[in-house]
Design a protein around this nucleic acid. Structure first.
Lengths: 211, 211
DNA sequence: TAGATTGTTAATCGATTAACAATC
DNA sequence: TAGATTGTTAATCGATTAACAATC
């Protein structure tokens, strides 16, 4: 399996670039075009494609439509991805209202919260009691979950999800979650992202002053 | 300058581990202890420290307090980091209420929004008109900014920030922002994070079925 | 002193880039 | 055909790991 996160990010970048080429009326693109658009080398583009089993035509490049379709399939864009969200707090609500998901085929089908006041079955994305989570996942065969609950309950939510058959989790809780070997865990630690910015600003500032 | 994001993440992990060792009453730790706690090799720990100019004592390991202090300083934890937030929508509000910032010395000092209805100078973190952004940054010498506005206005906010002297940006808008060479940009693309999970779940699922 | 741990150098591993034969 | 582009192999680059001399 392709193990590196960067491959997937590049794949997604190629996809965005392809959309733009399509809009400009391109029927086919060369590895050079994509490389320029995404900011990588053309070797990288061809290497990536070869890795994912994508082939083009020598001299003819890649058909935009065909290539788009192949990348869509790799990224699971050829079908709607149903996702459950646990935690209807501030981050949970932001995700429920996040507009970049739906047009990309990602659908949060239900949210869950332990707080009775948050429960609401009438909203487009219903907010259900946390106790219903396991049954819901099993019944609807959901594979992807988002954890947006406080640190101290994140692991127990994770355990429930795995028990119910979830295969991949995006975790917003600032804690290292334990899964099993079959579970993909991706941590979105907002504090860490900001700390990264802070570190590099400080480091850059220091080298500058030294010059 | 240390260019790799992973170094900073590991540094932050060492820091968390150190806090736990401290709680357990450790006065000093060995590279082996830290390696176990963080899940890297002890070579890596020592290599990282050597890179950041951190030295220990042969045989004696590292003093927990001293080491913590050094890492704190590298990560800018020895002082409060003031940050401005632009965009008081769903994500913006989630960040305003994000509890993991303040105890780590990250303070959102003001938020800005273009929508009059969102303006509120009385809240602990005031929400001010977008027009005041540039003056505010300059007056308070803010170096770090968070962009949580819609895609179509993100670049113009970025431009204003740079104009005003911002040195680092955490960007939540799903778009590639252009800065200049002195500006650190870190993109927190939530959709991309979720797409990563989806990709690996699909890829893992396929290899499994093949077995 | 004997044993253990650092700090650094060398070896390995993995990812990116360059080069070029195949070929359209 | 001549020229251009792919797909892949080899070379390079960078990051991680192993090994070990220095030394506490």
């Amino acid at each position: 399996m392709i193990a590196n996160k960067n491959y997937v990010i590049r794949l997604s970048n190629y996809r965005n670039a392809l959309k733009r080429f399509k809009k400009l009326g391109f029927i086919r693109v060369f590895s050079d075009n994509l490389a320029d658009a995404v900011g990588v080398s053309s070797s990288q583009v061809r290497k990536d494609f070869s890795l994912f089993g994508i082939t083009g035509n020598k001299k003819g490049g890649y058909q935009v439509d065909e290539l788009t379709k192949k990348i869509d399939s790799l990224l699971g864009k050829d079908r709607v991805q149903s996702v459950v969200l646990v935690g209807a707090g501030k981050i949970g609500k932001a995700l429920i209202n996040y507009k970049a998901f739906e047009p990309e085929g990602i659908r949060i089908v239900a949210a869950f919260d332990i707080d009775e006041k948050e429960i609401n079955r009438k909203t487009p994305i219903p907010v259900l009691p946390l106790d219903d989570l396991e049954v819901y996942i099993k019944k609807n065969k959901i594979e992807i979950g988002i954890i947006a609950v406080p640190e101290n309950v994140a692991q127990s939510v994770m355990d429930t999800m795995i028990e119910a058959g979830i295969k991949g989790v995006l975790n917003f809780a600032p804690i290292h979650l334990r899964g099993n070997d079959d579970t993909v865990i991706n941590n979105a630690n907002l504090r860490l992202e900001l700390e990264n910015v802070i570190y590099f600003v400080n480091a850059l500032g220091k080298t500058k002053r030294k010059r």
